[in-house]
């Protein structure tokens, strides 16, 4: 990963206590570059006319059109905002690991906060779901005064959960987030992925656009430990004696297999997958996020609608 001198070093960023300030710093730095970027402004309003059918709410009848054409049309607004985004944050204990002076959870929280700030500043509705083995908190996607604050407060909560279990939280989210929108899952995904495909497929089936951000510590990737030690699993507490010199290759191979598995799931389901290593500046991460959005081409709903139509 390359880091630019223009960006804020993650370690420096993490020293900012307030999550909101952190997000602001990232977004402003990012936006200052964004002004020159070609990807500015993708929010578009959408309306649709549909022939009135009995049972429709008469409040949405377009009387002007009726006056012009003498036909009843229901004026349908896509939404008040252009994007409904739910940020799903993994707060399990494995996220508490960090070799750089800050944990993956810190990084992920900042990332989520930054996204929130960025989306709110674009007048999008942002919701937040935190989970570990259960769903810890659920903030529905809204756009209103003070909502950003509420998100920040929820984010401030410390890593409290135990193990990572994606099944139950993703199922719950599927139940509670009825409207189609964007779901951004931020997790280290260091748990068995046997059922991950089903859950994500379920979400996709409900029309959500799903982004998967995997946050990993460089130590997890490189496994650059020297001395043999008793490695203790942060979630299960299981201890295994490992001599890194001998176990490194095996570990890295298995990790790569794991990540490859996730990638293949994402590819199959049309899920945008990004891997964030915690020593990457967040601006870069944001840039990549936007680039992936741009790569998708259009707004999620429309895209999905276009896809459906195309299908």
């Amino acid at each position: 990963m390359t880091t630019s001198g223009d960006f804020i070093d993650p370690l420096t960023l993490m020293r900012i206590k307030s999550l909101e300030l952190r997000a602001k710093a990232v977004v402003e730095g990012f936006q200052s570059g964004l002004n020159r970027s070609p990807y500015h402004g993708f929010s578009v309003e959408f309306t649709e006319y549909r022939q009135y059918a009995p049972g429709d709410d008469v409040r949405y009848l377009d009387w002007k059109l009726y006056a012009r054409s003498d036909r009843f049309y229901i004026k349908r607004f896509e939404d008040e905002t252009n994007l409904r985004c739910h940020l799903i944050l993994d707060m399990s204990r494995s996220m508490g690991y960090g070799s750089l002076g800050y944990s993956k959870a810190d990084y992920a929280r900042t990332l989520v906060a930054t996204l929130s700030y960025f989306l709110v500043s674009q007048r999008d509705a942002v919701g937040l779901v935190t989970f570990a083995d259960q769903m810890e908190s659920f903030v529905p996607a809204r756009f209103r005064t003070g909502h950003l604050r509420r998100l920040m407060v929820t984010l401030e909560q410390q890593v409290a959960g135990k193990s990572t279990d994606l099944d139950v939280p993703l199922e719950k989210i599927a139940e509670r987030v009825a409207r189609r929108g964007m779901l951004v899952l931020v997790s280290d995904l260091l748990s068995p992925i046997d059922t991950l495909e089903n859950r994500l497929a379920h979400l996709r089936a409900r029309g959500h656009e799903v982004l998967l951000f995997q946050v990993l510590d460089p130590a997890e990737l490189n496994f650059d430990f020297d001395n043999p030690a008793l490695f203790e699993d942060a979630e299960t507490g299981r201890k295994i004696y490992v001599d890194p010199n001998t176990a490194r290759a095996n570990y890295q191979q298995r990790l790569e297999e794991h990540i490859a598995g996730i990638r293949s799931i994402c590819d199959r389901l049309g899920i945008s997958y990004r891997q964030f290593v915690t020593d990457t500046p967040l601006e870069v991460a944001m840039g990549e996020f936007l680039r992936s959005r741009q790569h998708k081409g259009s707004l999620p709903a429309r895209t999905s609608a276009a896809n459906r139509r195309a299908a």
Partner: peptide
């Protein structure tokens, strides 16, 4: 015995077998 314990995010990628006698 190892000098210390290192908390790690997951041990699922380690060999579950007992440590080798180095």
């Amino acid at each position: 015995t190892p000098r210390g314990r290192i908390p790690f995010s997951t041990v699922m990628f380690f060999d579950p077998s007992p440590p080798q006698i180095t």
